[in-house]
Design a protein around this nucleic acid. Structure first.
Lengths: 341, 341
DNA sequence: ACGAATTGAACAATCGATTGCACATAAAAG
DNA sequence: CTTTTATGTGCAATCGATTGTTCAATTCGT
């Protein structure tokens, strides 16, 4: 492996000069610079990033902390797009992304500690926000550059990028109400995720505002993945009074719901209308196509990465603690059955 | 930041002793060891990984080289599962994954060079195999630890994990033939991917073996993403002689095809049968559920990671250049319309 | 009990870069 | 034609670990 010393020797200069050529130091003559550069080219020199990091105390690497397995499944499709957003921003900015996942809930903190205190990364992007998330607390206490995609409960000072999930759910519910639905249910996800709480809240607000009753048995909570759709629907449709429309927390879950309904012989939107969240690529291709709140997934990732890099490079330029990515409702067939005349 | 020197000072020993405590050197007394460990615990010591890497010439990091944007879209859902497989293996093995994507086809080589020659990573997992892939050539020439998920054209000596895509496509096609179909088309992806070539070959073999004609206009090639489904179907169904069944290269594409057909008023499987590849989670939840070749996506990732780590740690233990993950056909409704009586 | 063998810990060099400081040499000022 | 300033490069310390070698203190064999 060719080092800076080899270059120095070949060029007849000192290692420091070579180093200065690389970093375009102002006191290097044009002649020396081009000579050294030529030799670097010829010998195929690539700086050893570990050595560089050691002295600069900077790794040009960010960690992406994936949610724990259980939650990862739920929202799988969402993440691809999110990662694309992150990478598209970070790569040109010169940062590499370390993709990390804890083996179990227990080593989650340890995993992050190793990276953070071991100075393996310059910053962290957290991908899943739980209520009382110990990771968030830790990172915020350490004042380690961190951006959270999602929301946390007020106390911790941490930068975040999020949607206005409460409003988004309000909009989704409102959309159904405006079409005359009064019996609207909510299919949620793991209740310890802040997203789930927020969307639930928005749903409730819209319902209350319209003087509609929120029935407890129309709210299906828990870790309903795609596969849970059938079970969930069997339950909902077995009720004496059934909802005529559903707000579903995630497109993948909506696929499950749709599938369950189809198996049970119900038609969407005729028998039941559905609005969902995240607007993954495939929801447009479902039958029927699923109405979904586009949360700007790509933007979410892109912005988080941008924010984190800025926080690292120029902390003072950060004036906004929390960035909200606008959402918008994409109406498709799954919610287009009006009960109004 | 607390360093090894701080620990040494606090414990009244030399830095080398602390280092040896960490690595469980045999010549360290139990007394010293426990004393030092206690202090490390108290002071919250975490070794600086950059310093460690510099001397050990090892980073405990692997790069995952994502396909270029255009190809990334195609197969988006497949990757999530693949990444899960990789991470599940690598994390407990003590390796971190660097997720890298080239900004453009042109800096692809440069991006990898930076990581490889800059000793940023110990190995590389390549996620997409193109015909005559320059990356593969480069890495194989450099003898840099690399595992390819997919196949390359013989010349380069490189470890790989793959499916028998030819056989898989043969099986898929055969499945349709056995149900009496004679007019079978093939919807492919970007033709410069080896997967596409292999699957096409298997399709042709099955057709020839059954003495069925492969009609050029029943083969839709090109970068048909999910969205291309409508266009592709409009074309296929406008033909005078139409296929009665299709082999589709990827589930996401199949979703597009399905959607296109539905929009045009055709029914699957009644009007057209479909078999596809990859068996992503959602294909079970499509309407109708899509028959798909399960390629063991998770296994693919898991095995690739395992193989790479072994290659790094103990090259001599590698006896197999190429590992084939078994596939299996999952028959669902989309292909369950028999033309046989 | 005395030399040999073993055990335990410190010294110092090393990994491959960066960077403050010193020191020539060249250009500008007086 | 000196003195001052600007310019270009080298020396050596440093980042935070690891590790071969040296050396002192114990333990062992006979």
């Amino acid at each position: 492996m060719v080092t800076i010393k080899d270059i120095a020797r070949a060029a007849g200069v000192s290692p420091s000069t070579v180093s200065r050529v690389i970093s375009n130091h102002s006191r290097i003559s044009a002649k020396t610079s081009s000579k050294v550069k030529k030799i670097m080219e010829e010998m195929g020199y690539h700086p050893n990033m570990m050595a560089k990091s050691l002295v600069s105390k900077t790794t040009k690497t960010l960690a992406i902390m994936l949610p724990r397995p259980a939650e990862e499944l739920f929202q799988d499709f969402f993440f691809g797009e999110l990662l694309r957003g992150i990478l598209t921003q970070s790569t040109p900015a010169g940062y590499d992304m370390l993709l990390t996942a804890a083996t179990s809930p227990f080593d989650e903190k340890e995993t992050v500690s190793r990276l953070v205190f071991g100075r393996r990364v310059d910053g962290v992007i957290l991908l899943s926000a739980r209520v009382d998330d110990p990771l968030i607390t830790m990172l915020s206490e350490q004042q380690f550059p961190t951006v959270l995609i999602g929301r946390t409960d007020g106390s911790a000072r941490i930068l975040s990028v999020d949607n206005d999930n409460e409003q988004a759910a309000y909009d989704a519910t409102r959309h159904l109400i405006l079409q005359g639905h009064e019996r609207i249910g909510f299919v949620s996800g793991p209740p310890n995720l802040t997203v789930a709480l927020d969307r639930m809240a928005g749903y409730r607000r819209a319902m209350q505002e319209a003087n509609l009753t929120v029935r407890a048995d129309w709210i299906v909570e828990g870790e309903y993945l795609q596969n849970g759709g059938y079970r969930a629907m069997t339950f909902l449709m077995s009720l004496h009074e059934r909802p005529s429309a559903l707000v579903v927390i995630d497109d993948a879950v909506a696929f499950g719901v749709l599938h369950g309904l189809t198996e049970l012989g119900y038609k969407v939107p005729d028998d039941l209308c559905i609005v969902s969240f995240n607007n993954i690529a495939l929801s447009e291709l479902a039958s029927p196509p699923i109405s979904s709140i586009d949360v700007g997934t790509y933007q979410l990732g892109y912005t988080a990465s941008q924010m984190l890099i800025r926080l690292i490079q120029d902390p003072d330029s950060i004036y906004q603690q929390r960035i909200i990515i606008p959402h918008r409702l994409i109406v498709r067939e799954s919610s287009l059955f009006s009960l109004r005349i």
